[in-house]
Each structure stands twice: as structure tokens, then as C-alpha cells.
Amino acid sequence: MAEQMRINGNIGDPFVIDGQETTLCVHGDGFGLNVVTAGGNTTCEFARDVMNSATAGLNPTGDNVRDRMPTTVRAASPVTSQTYDMNCSVDERNLITCTGGDNATVYMY
């Protein structure tokens, strides 16, 4: 899944993660991340803000976000102009899944 996105994916390409349609938003931006995707009800701008909130204060070349991943991240939506709480977890595949807000999902791998 993530390897396919990292090697073959272009920003804006659709991918399926755990049965959910997502859009590739960010290619490796440090912090141990290869890709960031936005679920069907989520914009790439919001997904980037979730990533930025999760990585705030970390060194992009020395820190892995999974080592310090907060369980709750606050992110701003450019569509609604509101701030939302996103509940984040890291699974056994090292896939970070953040859900919340207005039915939003962001995946980071």
C-alpha cells in the first residue's frame, strides 16, 4: 500500500487504504513519513495541517513522529474555518490513522 504510493504515486492520485478511498497529499516530508493521504471527506490542506500539528516541535531529519505521536491532534480546516480534534493511533504496520473532526480521516505512513 504505502510502498506503491511512495514509488508510483503522484500528489492527487487516488489510493485505497483499508477499504477507504484516499487521495495522496504529501510525499516524504521528514519525521519518518513517506506519504500522507486524505480520506474521502477530507481535503489535502486539512491532512497537511494534521501532519504539521502532529510533527510540531520535532526535528524533521532526526525525529520519527511515531515515537512521539500524540493521541489527539488539533488541526484547522480551510473549508469550514474551524479547528477540530483528530484522534490518532499507530498500528502494527506503522500506519498512523487520525480520525475525527467532521468525519475526517488522515493516514500517514
Rank of each mutant, 00 (worst) to 15 (best):
I17G: 02
D29T: 05
I96L: 05
D102H: 10
D18K: 15
N8I: 04
C44H: 13
V50D: 03
N64V: 03
N10G: 11
A38H: 09
L33S: 09
L58M: 15
T42S: 06
C25Q: 03
I96P: 01
D49S: 00
N64A: 12
V36Q: 02
S77W: 05
A2M: 10
G62R: 15
R66L: 07
R93P: 00
F15E: 00
A54V: 02
R48G: 04
E3H: 13
A104R: 15
I96D: 04
I17C: 03
G19L: 09
A38L: 07
D91L: 13
T72L: 05
A56F: 15
F31S: 01
T71M: 09
N103E: 11
R74C: 01
Y84M: 05
T43Y: 13
A104D: 09
R6G: 06
A56M: 15
G101A: 02
M51W: 09
A54R: 08
V16W: 03
D13Y: 13
T37M: 04
V65P: 05
Y107A: 05
S53T: 06
V65G: 10
G62C: 07
P78F: 03
M108A: 01
I11D: 00
N94T: 10
C25D: 02
M69T: 06
T22K: 00
D91R: 13
D29V: 09
V106C: 04
A56V: 11
C25Y: 02
R48P: 01
F15H: 00
G28V: 06
A76M: 00
T72Q: 14
Q82D: 08
R48N: 05
R6T: 13
E45M: 07
R93H: 14
A104G: 01
S77Y: 07
G39P: 04
G32E: 04
Q4G: 06
V90W: 02
E45Q: 13
V16H: 04
N8F: 14
V26D: 00
G57V: 12
A56P: 02
P60M: 06
T72N: 10
